[in-house]
Nucleic acid binder design. Sequence first.
DNA 1: CCACGCTAACTGGTATACCGAATACCGGGC
DNA 2: GCCCGGTATTCGGTATACCAGTTAGCGTGG
Lengths: 234, 234
Amino acid sequence: MTTRRPDRHTPIGDTHRSLRDRVHEELRERIIEGEYPAGRRLVERELAEELGVSRIPLREAMQRLESEGFLLVQARRGAVVADFGTEDAEHLFDVREKLEGLAAGLAARRATPTQLRAMERLLTRSRKASEAGRLREAVTHNADFHQLVVDASGNPLLRDLMAPLDSRLRRLFRLTSELNDGDPMCGEHERLYEAIRAGDERQAEERARAHVAGTRTATLRCLAERTAEGSDTA
Amino acid sequence: MTTRRPDRHTPIGDTHRSLRDRVHEELRERIIEGEYPAGRRLVERELAEELGVSRIPLREAMQRLESEGFLLVQARRGAVVADFGTEDAEHLFDVREKLEGLAAGLAARRATPTQLRAMERLLTRSRKASEAGRLREAVTHNADFHQLVVDASGNPLLRDLMAPLDSRLRRLFRLTSELNDGDPMCGEHERLYEAIRAGDERQAEERARAHVAGTRTATLRCLAERTAEGSDTA
DNA sequence: CCACGCTAACTGGTATACCGAATACCGGGC
DNA sequence: GCCCGGTATTCGGTATACCAGTTAGCGTGG
């Protein structure tokens, strides 16, 4: 408790966002990346010390993580990293299917030429990266493409709802390695883009839903194998 | 700053929930009920003093309200009650249409006999209250019915997503008086219930969506009249 | 008179220390 | 062996102080 360095100024990043935001992002990444496995306890004073911040921004970050489903905070018993099993994945995909469908449908109605160009650009990059075997980059571009669709929906509420779900999905993808993303994604994304560009709401919605459904089966199969073979306690 | 009473123990309610939760609920109700109109500034030290709590739980409550869309918090410039206009209502209904549909579909698949009985009980009460002219009570029962459907979906993520949306909807209903709830609701709810009881996912989903769509048009028409006639700055 | 910059007040952001309460754990007495 | 009570841990809540950014007002110089 007395080992505080006097020079704690940019403990995590060095942007000018609030400590709360930085701590929130840092902890979220640690959970997503598996550094903090499910069940791991997070002790406020300990973590605050380690991150070089006080309890207040840490508490605020942890509360946000709880509301986003990454932490379970029991009053006076501490916080633990939430589990994420098959059922949770099912629930997540149920919701994503609807919301991605909605986003795609609205995007088909409202996407601006600029947004369409941006989507096309991302698809091109994603395909190139995928063909070149740069899987990580392709995954990033795919995620950005989804984000663009949500933005193009013109529904800020939808965007706010999806953001935490995306984080959960990223965590799920980490749990199931990277074998689910890549080639088939590109084709589906491209067909989704075509529907959006054509302004065909029905088809855009349907393709987005089908895309999510495909991701669901692939991911869940992977998750099932993963949990079947053995436990990986980092 | 020096008028603190030493006996501040149950400043809001008297349950043993955390101050954060109580303050959150209190402020949320004030916003929903229109006591704090859109644009109203909330000053931390002032409000903390008034509620008899310190700034920390108040801040945490305000952050939650921000994430739920009730407040706009600008760093170092204070918090204001968020506006809620026609566009926001449209966005809200877009999302609710999908999520209520999802909930109803899942409920049709998974609702237990106990849950079905509870729904039926609520519908009966709602109809009685409605026929007796007890509009407030009918509205409450209707809201509870929706909640039951969401619970019966067996998807906790969906429940967590819907909760803040329900609060927003309540705020919208307050803005548009009570003339949109009541008689037609009961019939639609009853038909929705029938579909759920029959286990017909497609129909349950469709009826829920249609129900939300109906609420949308009624509410938006009401909102349009309301904003057309005059401004009500409390 | 206007424009620019400085300063002071306000407000949120953070740090730190403290208290009380609930919990978990451990050891002693029955 | 089991129950009970004490202690350490941890959290919830608070008070207080200080820092930092924002804003508005004022004064000075053009």
